[in-house]
Design a protein around this nucleic acid. Structure first.
Lengths: 356, 356
DNA sequence: TTAGAATCGTTAAACGTTTAAAAAATCAGG
DNA sequence: CCTGATTTTTTAAACGTTTAACGATTCTAA
């Protein structure tokens, strides 16, 4: 049973499909279609359960009222939450959302961009894993609307919504230092060169320097995205032994932190007594894991909402010239994983306080 | 700058677009196009960075090489993992994936189905929140390919991939009973009537009965999906007090469990000493939360992969008549949240054993 | 030379919309 | 009942593909 088309309605009513189209698009009055005729069309459309074929519509109009979202890893809670928010805000503006996950794969990401464009998606929100500006330069040239989230590329003029990674990392690291930790490991993640990670690393480095500690590059390690769990285990096994013997750990995202927790708990290493942990990304479970985790929280909802707004404005030509760059503040949330000795800011903690 | 079309290539080479189409679709030899000509076409296509317009293609062919996935809640790890797997398997078969989240909203789900169909998606995988078979009956009538995952509708002939919810719940509940817990609360989730939840509740009820315990319907509560955290807090606040005073809790999904953990930890209620907890859905953090959580694990990857396979077969007419129904086994994973007194199966636990 | 085959290529319609432009129908006034 | 004006509706092209059907040109063999 085929779906009913404009033509079907037109034929059964003995009118032209143009007329039907006008009526169904609410242009009936403007085009001076008789009220009676309009009524009949509407009625028949309902009766036949007419649904416009968006493909045909898109082909004709060159637009689809749909935006695309490409995240680096949909199974990461951080992105999942952004996706949810993006969908909500897009829906509120009568835009549909198509979303995809690049799984941190540069090639796949390019294919996804092509795929979305081939489907006449009106614009894209993307947390890119590209190292090169090539793909986006082309989009710029073609004036295709997009906004980067989370990650950006230097020397690329582009709309961007992200957070102050540097400040977050700086504060997190300094927090460890204030609490007397000295040998602080940094766990980064592959692929190499992501802006977020670079910014966070810089925050970490500067915090050390400004507090009179030496940066030991041996303590800075990269975890493989492909197998976080195993990679973390390997790296930590080394870092907890001499000559490194770290006493604290700054993890650059929630997935790494989770893997760390599992490894350290498994080895009977006490947090924060033996090793302190602070994490970028705050996720639900950090509030009641063992121990609760001190973390840098990103304003996930805001990131999603702002990205959509900027994109829709761009699509509708309301952004004027020039790209929007939004850096949102992060929030540093103190819990129990990063302080044996409670300083004045910590000493109001209770064993099971609820942090929100 | 417009994207290049078939016509652009045809014009610059002074050939017909039909020819270009043939060559680009690998039909050049079959249609007897001169090798020389083919070469030129291919070359020019590359030079102009030609990408077929899938919208136009879809309009002509009535198919899009894309499948849709609608999950009930993308921010739930369970669904996020399924989504990832579905994308991988679909990609392996040269199908694109569009995915959406209905947020447990019946109306929105219907809109999403329409949206996907309007975009000529070739088939849909869906964890439905419909109470009514109407929507799917229509799809059946129109012979539109779809497969239900996770949740199903009684009296609806449909492809389905799910797990043995009954057995999982039964085993989980019986485990609690064997460990001497007597007043076992059951936390369900709204919306009411989901097959998964019904089956799990039945498992719980039968386990109690078959072990000589009375089912107390006052201990069976429904958590509101819209605000799990608060809803759990309200419910538990009541259940831990007289006259109920539960000593164990069976939670019907991972999100509820997470909320329970947070609440109980916050109230300084010890798990499993004061209250034991078992959960449906196993997620990473249950391995190192405090305490680690005993849970019923679903074969997430398998669910996703099988659903895709069944759908693609259906799309390509390889399924024959009749619908496929796949019920996969679950795995019960014992950890520390459900046993004060270690029985013989439990006593080989160590404080921080790694459960995988 | 010429019929027929082989080789290489084109035409035109179709998919379901939208929309500018043209056309038909109706009406009002003389 | 004719003339414009007004109201209502239709025509036809366009979006970018695919594909059945047809058309040219060249070659082969008698």
């Amino acid at each position: 049973m085929k779906k009913t088309s404009l033509n079907d309605i037109a034929k059964t009513l003995n009118v032209s499909k143009a007329l039907v189209s006008f009526v169904l698009n609410g242009q009936g009055d403007k085009k001076g279609i008789k009220a009676e005729t309009q009524r009949k069309v509407l009625e028949k459309a309902k009766e036949l359960n007419y649904k416009p074929n968006q493909i045909a519509r898109g082909l004709r109009l060159g637009t689809s009222n749909t935006i695309g979202l490409i995240v680096a890893d949909i199974s990461n809670k951080f992105y999942a939450k952004i996706a949810k928010q993006v969908e909500v805000v897009a829906g509120r503006n009568n835009y549909n959302l198509i979303f995809c996950s690049s799984d941190e794969n540069e090639e796949k990401e390019i294919e996804l961009i092509d795929m979305l464009r081939e489907r006449l998606v009106d614009g894209i929100i993307i947390s890119t894993t590209q190292k090169d500006t090539k793909v986006f330069s082309r989009l710029n040239k073609e004036k295709y609307p997009y906004v980067l989230i989370d990650r950006r590329l230097s020397r690329l003029p582009a709309n961007y919504v992200g957070v102050d990674n540097y400040a977050g990392a700086y504060e997190a690291t300094e927090h460890l230092i204030r609490n007397k930790y000295q040998k602080i490991g940094l766990l980064k993640i592959s692929p190499e060169g992501l802006s977020t990670i670079r910014e966070r690393e810089q925050g970490y480095r500067d915090a050390l320097k400004n507090n009179g500690l030496r940066v030991n590059s041996k303590l800075i390690r990269t975890i493989s995205f492909a197998d976080i769990r195993q990679s973390v285990a390997e790296v930590l096994r080394e870092l907890i032994e001499p000559p490194y013997k770290i006493d604290a750990l700054f993890s650059v995202n929630n997935n790494i932190t989770v893997a760390c927790m599992e490894f350290l708990n498994g080895m009977n290493i006490r947090i924060p007594h033996d090793i302190a942990v602070v994490s970028f990304d705050d996720i639900d479970l950090f509030r009641f894991s063992f121990p609760t985790i001190t973390a840098v929280a990103q304003p996930v909802e805001q990131i999603g909402a702002m990205a959509v707004n900027i994109l829709l404005n761009e699509i509708n030509g309301l952004n004027g010239e020039g790209k929007k760059q939004v850096i949102l503040p992060v929030e540093f949330i103190r819990r129990r994983s990063a302080a044996i000795f409670s300083d004045q800011r910590e000493n109001n903690f209770e064993i099971n306080s609820n942090t929100e």
